[in-house]
């Protein structure tokens, strides 16, 4: 009797772990997001309840390059993978919902946040790479403070993309400096 109970618990945990990662949204946008320009796509994100991995890849690519030079998800994914912003080992489908830790990993890679010791040691094996990135991105205030397993809303993705933009602008010394009318020369 006792062993049957253990088997049940183990099976339940296994089912939870195996199924918890695969998660697709039912919501379908009225207009195919691929048809939007970069700016339209970013503002489209503010209206969607969840975003897919494909949309996340496109948003991050826009944040990285300032523009989207690719025509489909496969090309974008390959470009991000070449820069180690996404990893094949995650085995994420394009239509799968994007979670906070995946978004955090992409954000830390784009912003070149120095990795922690744990992230360097274990993350290089692929063990907890996104989990450690979640902590780093939270500390750098690149992402909203949310649980790592939570699925990202469009607004949160847009917020993160904007923060990445701020971070890159500051790193390049192009942060906005206008504070007073005297700083602005009228044309």
């Amino acid at each position: 009797m006792h062993s049957n109970k253990n088997i049940f618990v183990v099976t339940a945990i296994a089912a939870m772990l195996s199924g918890g990662c695969a998660h697709y949204r039912e919501f379908q946008p009225q207009v195919e997001p691929e048809t939007y320009s970069e700016t339209q796509f970013l503002h489209y994100l503010s209206s969607v309840p969840t975003v897919t991995f494909a949309e996340g890849c496109r948003a991050m690519l826009i944040a990285t390059d300032g523009a989207d030079h690719f025509g489909n998800h496969d090309e974008r994914y390959a470009a991000l993978r070449d820069r180690d912003i996404v990893r094949d080992s995650w085995e994420l489908d394009p239509e799968q919902s994007l979670d906070v830790s995946t978004m955090a990993f992409m954000a830390t890679k784009i912003c070149d946040i120095p990795p922690s010791v744990c992230s360097t040691v274990f993350g290089s094996w692929g063990l907890g790479d996104r989990r450690y990135a979640h902590k780093q991105a939270s500390a750098a205030q690149l992402i909203p403070y949310e649980p790592s397993y939570k699925f990202v809303t469009g607004g949160e993705l847009l917020f993160t993309v904007a923060k990445i933009d701020d971070h890159l602008a500051m790193r390049e010394g192009q942060g906005e400096k206008i504070n007073a009318p005297s700083d602005v020369a009228a044309p």
């Binding site: 939870m16 918890g20 998660h23 697709y24 039912e26 919501f27 969607v48 309840p49 939570k150």
Partner: peptide, 27 residues
């Protein structure tokens, strides 16, 4: 748009997602 998500799995994960959805709906 309908923001209800489709879950494949057990009630525990569904419950977690429901909490998340409540937050999303609030947001």
């Amino acid at each position: 748009p309908n923001s209800v998500m489709q879950y494949r799995i057990n009630p525990i994960v569904a419950a977690i997602a429901c909490v998340s959805m409540t937050c999303i709906a609030h947001a």
